[in-house]
């Protein structure tokens, strides 16, 4: 088990540093941050001063080595905008994104899993077709478009919900719906396929042959087996969710990491963007780790082969 954890942690670290490296070079190739930060008419001497101050006059490789060294010391650099610690700037926005993400995942699970299962059990009936048609609409609709529609309907027309901001449950409804609809729809389709696949397995037939109540067959035999591919799918989805969050947070002015990212890229706030990229990479790595641990928990075959429990 220890070997497994150490191995995975090392791999996670490599992934995260790799992402940070990529962000580091891409950002510096994308243009001079000084021009973006200082007023257009700033005198050249001032620009030069800032350049020296932030170390941007050094050769690229030297900047990179310095960056890695400070990373190793736990220093993520300073925001170019207000000079605060970049990690602190990112962390104070993380809470909002985590709340939104958590609610979205819960929403997707609560709608997607029952809907998918229902459709699979009623395969070929009008109920199945109706569910799947709704699902196709759900995930064919682009995030930003759905967000704007919701604002038009609930804020402009009905005046039920605030169009943007943060602080109450009412603020959360539309961003969560925007992100959750697509995820729930995709999940529903995925769960349906997965459940159908398991329903056709000989062991489900054998379970029915035991005169078990149908509910017991579904809960004990169909669900755990159908969950295996669904978990993989969720692992990917959590990664994609972050991308969706960037758009949605901006549409609804939700003060999360996605919102900060767009702002910081526009300002060429190098340290903050790099920190956000690392945070996103860390989330995905963590999601993957959770998926793998969940496999081991559900599937005894993985437990044997994967290492946590040998023999």
């Amino acid at each position: 088990m220890l070997r497994f954890v150490v191995f995975r942690l090392a791999r996670a670290l490599i992934t995260i540093v790799g992402c940070a490296t990529l962000a580091f070079f891409v950002l510096r190739m994308a243009g001079d941050p000084i021009i973006a930060l200082l007023p257009a008419d700033a005198p050249p001497e001032v620009m030069e001063r800032y350049r020296t101050l932030w170390g941007l006059d050094r050769p690229l490789y030297e900047q990179y080595v310095r960056y890695l060294i400070s990373l190793a010391q736990g220093d993520f650099g300073q925001s170019l905008v207000d000079g605060r610690d970049a990690l602190g700037v990112v962390l104070e926005r993380a809470g909002a994104t985590l709340i939104l993400g958590g609610v979205v995942i819960a929403l997707a699970l609560l709608i997607g899993v029952p809907a998918g299962t229902f459709a699979a059990l009623r395969r070929g009936t009008p109920a199945d077709h109706a569910t799947m048609t709704v699902a196709i609409f759900g995930y064919a609709m682009p995030n930003f478009f759905l967000g704007l529609l919701l604002i038009l309907l609930f804020s402009m027309q009905l005046r039920l919900l605030p169009s943007s901001g943060y602080g109450s449950a009412a603020h959360l409804v539309m961003p969560a719906l925007t992100l959750g609809t697509a995820m729930a729809a995709k999940l529903a389709r995925f769960v349906r396929t997965s459940v159908l696949d398991v329903l056709g397995q000989p062991f489900v037939r054998a379970a029915r042959g035991k005169r078990l109540p149908e509910l017991a067959v579904i809960l004990r035999h169909v669900f755990p087996n159908a969950a295996i591919p669904v978990i993989t799918f969720l692992g990917f989805e959590i990664g994609l969710l972050i991308g969706g969050a960037v758009v949605t947070e901006n549409v609804f002015g939700w003060p999360g990491i996605g919102n900060l990212l767009v702002l910081s890229v526009a300002r060429r706030d190098l340290a903050v963007v790099q920190t956000i990229v690392m945070a996103i990479a860390a989330t995905m790595v963590l999601a993957n780790l959770v998926v793998d641990l969940a496999y081991g928990w559900i599937d005894p075959r993985v437990r044997l082969a994967g290492g946590p429990r040998e023999g």
Partner: peptide, 22 residues
């Protein structure tokens, strides 16, 4: 839907007829 009481069956591929997760 399901067998009457007193009837049980052994299936062709035993390994496939057992739930791998239980």
């Amino acid at each position: 839907k399901g067998p009457p009481e007193g009837l049980a069956m052994i299936y062709q591929d035993a390994t496939a007829s057992l739930d791998p997760l239980m």
